[in-house]
Design a protein around this nucleic acid. Sequence first.
RNA 1: CCUACGGUAGCUCAGUCCGGUAGAGUGCCCGUCUGAUACGCGGGUGGCCGGAGGUUCAAAUCCUCCCCGUAGGACCA
Length: 1053
Amino acid sequence: MSPDDRPYPDVPAQPSFPEIERGVLERWKSQGTFAESVDRRPPGARGRNEFVFYDGPPFANGLPHYGHLLTGYVKDIVPRYQTMRGRRVERRFGWDCHGLPAEMEAERELGVSGRRAITEYGIDRFNEHCRTSVMKYTGEWQRYVERQARWVRFDNDYKTMDLSYMESVMWAFKELWKKGLVYEDHRVKTYSWAAETPVSNFETRIDDAYRERQDPAITVRFRLVPRSGDDGPLEVLAWTTTPWTLPSNLALAVGPEIEYAVFVEDGVRFVLGAAAAAKYEGELAGAERVGTLSGSELVGRSYEPLFPYFSGHERAFRILGAEFVDTEEGTGVVHMAPGFGEDDQRVCRENGIELVCPVDEKGNFTEEVADFVGQNVLAANKPIIRRLKDDGKLVRHETYVHNYPHCWRTDEPLIFKALESWYVKVTDFRDRMVEHNRGINWIPGHVRDGQFGKWLEGARDWSISRNRFWGSPIPVWKSDDPAYPRIDVYGSLDELERDFGVRPTDLHRPGIDELTRPNPDDPTGKSTMRRVPDVLDCWFESGAMPFAQVHYPFENKEWFDDHFPADFIVEYIAQTRGWFYTLMVLSTALFDRPAFQNAICHGVVLDNEGKKLSKRLRNYPDPDEVFDTRGSDALRWFLCSSNILRGGDLQIDREGKAIAESVRLVIIPIWNAYHFFCLYANPDGAEARVRTDQTAVLDRYVLAKTRQLVEQVTDAMNAYDVPRACGLVRSFLDALNNWYIRRSRDRAWRKEKDPDKQDFYDTLYTVLEVLCRVAAPLLPLITDEVYTGLTGRESVHLQDWPDAGELPDDPGLVAAMDRVREVCSTALSLREEHRLRVRLPLASLTVAGADTQSLLAFADLIRDEVNVKSVEASEDLDTFGSFQLVVNARAVGPRLGASMKTVMTASKSGDWRSLEDGRVAVAEAVLEPTEFSLRLLPKEGLEGLAVQSLPSNDVVVGLDVRTTPELEQEGLARDLVRQIQAQRRDQDLDVSDRVRLWINGPQDVLDAAAQWTDYICKQVLAVELSFEPIPGDWESSVSDVSGSETRVAVRKI
RNA sequence: CCUACGGUAGCUCAGUCCGGUAGAGUGCCCGUCUGAUACGCGGGUGGCCGGAGGUUCAAAUCCUCCCCGUAGGACCA
């Protein structure tokens, strides 16, 4: 038979898996397999047969790393599974194009740094650069995604910078506005006066942004407005590290519960926190403590402003009560400048004090602070302190070293400053979000009420505006004259066209800023409607993805209604504050529905010391190298079989050894089974088919075991438990290769065609066919290679998920056979213990215990596996073992209470007896049959018999360890066979080559060879056996099995 | 400082909800190559369950406090 006639491929024993993978990827590409797998599944009426998957958009600039690869694998596994289940799963790639990372990259590339520089460079040119630079890595992304065998469409991808996407975002903003869920407000934020820009939390976390800085720390006195009952002038002491905020002071805060001490010196009374007084020993040396006040007694009192600039300010210059005040640092009295401190602003607002912010964009004092106008606030610290000293207000001047945020771009210290910003009123519908979240299936489950649930409960209003350039514009136009206020919010291109007379083809700045019109509410006609300059937080856009990707509601209205919410999304755990959250916010605010029903949160990939992966440290294996040397399926398995998919972390070693392990543990075993099948079926010209009516017990076992595999993997996949599915496949492979195939091999060796051999081929074929389908989502490349090679059909990914019902159901057989495997393990362990090699036959093996007769059905298997002449079952437990009492403590505990202790010790030491009625007496107690079980332990000191119990402790295995001359001789014969076979192999003989055979050696070996000549010759295909001296030019091998040198030689004839 | 998650064999992790006498894989050690697989097979070794208290007849499991790791958040007047 020529290779061409062979029904199955010529499968190499040790292939290059990466090479196979590249071949499969090529095949998919040329045959359009992905598109086919989607198209064949009907969407059903109104998309009811669709499984809706949302692909969270990654930032387009920057290369993928292991985190992305992991997410990508899961984004592939679940849709592949659902496709095989018959669902239509559209997969569309998305790109997150806007946002600070994109701008930072552009600034770096253009050598333009900071807001002012960008404005000078030209917003149009800057944004044009962003538009192209942001797509710089899309090719690389596509290459990675394809190499990892992830099926997702790039040809109809969506981009957050598309006009249609941005129009939908605009619509969403207007909807929120109409619902009263958007507002503008002043909030205190970190601000870089040097770069003239607000700095996000994200930016303050960049390396070294927080570092030590020495600032002045001063204590100043505020004189209270006298009140009847005062014993003279009263002053409170406040401490600050930002003297430049004192001109903007509008209030003082004390802790209502805090105890304040009153001191007197020269008739003036001082108040400060009692706990802080010790710090001011020096200043208070001449003072005398005369009393105590609680914070609440101070609340409400007015004081004289330190500076005159805002002296008429409404409701200002009073002492307020605030919970956050403490006496750890400072005096227990906090100076409040609501324009420059978050707490300050909040507390002042609660007390009806409007903030003031006399500092301009450059960080210089405005005209409002006349004495220091034009001075940078930090530089103004000194003159301000001098002024306070001159005025006698300064109590103490020291320095203070603290961790302080710096601008990562200019290295200058940041300041806290109130800025205008737009907010989504998340607090208004927070409860609805919490409610929607209850219905979401989170993996792992604790995320629902833990990380995500807690975050929702504590949700605050969401700042959605960014004082930047490259992003979706805030679609708000305001009158430029406060005398004629008007605000217009736009939600579509139509509305813009209606009011401005032109229809924009691009919504980006600066084009959008050029749309202006006269203020309709201004009869003078002088004021103009202008767009507020901010752009939207790019997270707003990613949260808008479910509808913006299809240009809802301008198009695809029905489609969206049918495809929302998503069935499934997956991202890493930190997205509970990111995409998971923004999806929830917008879906709740706009549609009062959750945006997704099932969500996997995976953990973080770390290096083997538990540190983050870092490009700079190169503490991880290069993904390309992993693809080239181990393959994508191995990486997929390594990542997805780990509990990183259950929210844990995963450590990856620098050399990628663990990835190589996946090849060894899973991919090679699958390949070996496939290889074995082809190796024998091909020369036989056997064509196998899917069948389940085989009668041989091993066949029925492996088919029933396969059914269990299908059932269990289906359960796991339905529960989105990918690691569990992986574990099931792995333990199945062990049963397949190391039990079913190994115990069935001899059926393939028979020369003639016979039904039993065909049964074996059919069984193995059937099992492999099902296994490939079950493992297809988990190992899409290798299973497809095996599946197509085996069946000649089209890709496994175009097949249906296997139906467990088509395989025989026989859990009893599976359990019995698995027990047989345990008996064999135990017997082999006894051999090991007694140093009796497996080739040495032993007389008998006895299994003793309840219901061991049924094991005799498998006696042949056991006999072969452990090499004994006979296998026997015995109910006579006393010969082989004794019982130990195992108390069912859970049942007895509550009844016996304190005497449990003695019962437990007595049961362990064997101090108990059975009663006639089936109960047992132990210590002082009598146990009902339900309250205990008996564990069988092997008896010790048996003559010629080695015993050991199964792990389940209900069966004892006894091995006859006495040998006889006959057994020894047979053992030697088998040793010879082994040695001869090795010799055959060394000479690269084919399994069917016939040979002549020479054996030289000690007398016992020669006797054994003579006694077992027929057996030996048959085993090694020898036509002639000679004990003459071996001809000198023959290859021979030497062994010392029998204790002295044995030499064998073979020659092909 | 707060929140979530974790700390169980050398390593990676089950087991903890619902208390009842500690598991897997891997590593290591030993053995093993007879016609698919030595990238294999079999066996063995290995743990005062992060620490300290408490509840209980009984705690890896429940409670309290503490320590360590990871992630996120807050604060830095």
